[in-house]
Amino acid sequence: MRDDPHRNIDDLRLFHTAEHPCGYWPQRVARDLVLDPRDPRLAQWYPQALQWGFRRSGNIVYRPHCQGCRACVAVRIPVDRFQPDRSQRRCLRRNAHVTMRVLPAERTDEQLSLYRRYLTARHRGGGMDDHGASEFDQFLAGQWNDGRFIELREPAAHGPGRLLVVAVTDVVDTALSAVYTFFDPDEDKRGLGTLAVLKQLQWARTQGHSHLYLGYWIDGHRKMDYKRRFRPLEGFDGRSWRDLDIGDSA
C-alpha cells in the first residue's frame, strides 16, 4: 500500500522561481510556484496538486504565481456532465474514421518527427525549435508520472495508418490531465486539437474518471480560446473549483 501523502503535508516544500518572460503575454514577466522536484513523493502528491491548480511540465509540477497578475486560471472538464456542442459534433463527424490507440509514454521516431514538424509550423521562434529526442523525453514523457500517448491515425488498408495527433495524457486515480498535444500542421482545418480533447474525454468516461484537466485558460488569449468551448468548464479560484461563466461558445 502506498503511503498517504496527506499525512506529511506539513513537510511539503514549495519554491518560487525567478522572474522569466511570460509565455503568453510577451510584454509581461512571470513567476511560478513549484513543488520540490527532488521530493521522492511527487507521484503521490501529483493528484492532489492537480486539484490545487498545478500541472506538470517534464518532471516539474508548477502553478503560475505572478506579481499582480492572476490571468492564468486552472481549468478542468467534469466528464459526466460534458456534452459536445454543435461545432464539436461536426468535428467528430468530420473525423469519424480516425482511429485511436492508447500507448505507453515511450517515444517513437514517427512521433518525434511529427512533434518537430508541429513545432516548426506552430511555434517557430518560441524556444523549442531545436527540440530533439532528449528534449521530447524530458518535456513530454517525464520520469515519475503515469503517462500515456494517445495516437489518432488516418486508417490505412495495411499498417497502422498515418499519424495525425499525439495527445500526451497523465493518468491519476480519478482523473486525466492533458499535458500537451501536437498534430499534423498540414491538417489544421480538421480541428485536430479539438478532436484530441474529445477523444481524451471519451477515454476518461470509459475508464470512470471524473475530470479531464486542461491546464490553464486565459480570458482574451487567442490560443486559449478553444478551452472555453468545452462546457461545463470548471475553474480553480485558489480555494475551490467552480463552473465558469465565460460567454457563448457557439
Rank of each mutant, 00 (worst) to 15 (best):
M1I: 14
P5H: 01
N8H: 15
I9V: 14
D11H: 11
R13A: 10
H16S: 15
P21L: 07
C22Y: 02
V29L: 14
D32P: 07
D36R: 05
D39I: 08
A43V: 09
A49C: 05
G53Q: 01
F54L: 01
R56H: 02
V61D: 06
V61K: 06
C69I: 04
R76A: 00
V79W: 09
N95Y: 01
N95F: 04
A96C: 04
A96M: 02
M100G: 06
L103W: 03
E106D: 03
Q111H: 12
T120A: 15
A121T: 00
R122P: 10
G126L: 09
S134Y: 12
S134V: 13
L140W: 08
A141T: 11
Q143V: 11
I150L: 11
E151L: 12
L152I: 03
A157N: 10
G159S: 03
R162L: 12
A175H: 08
S177H: 00
A178W: 04
V179W: 00
P185F: 05
E187W: 08
G191N: 00
G193E: 05
L198R: 06
L201C: 11
L201W: 10
W203A: 12
W203H: 14
T206R: 09
T206D: 08
I218K: 01
R222T: 15
R228M: 07
R231H: 06
P232G: 09
S240W: 10
L244C: 02
G247N: 10
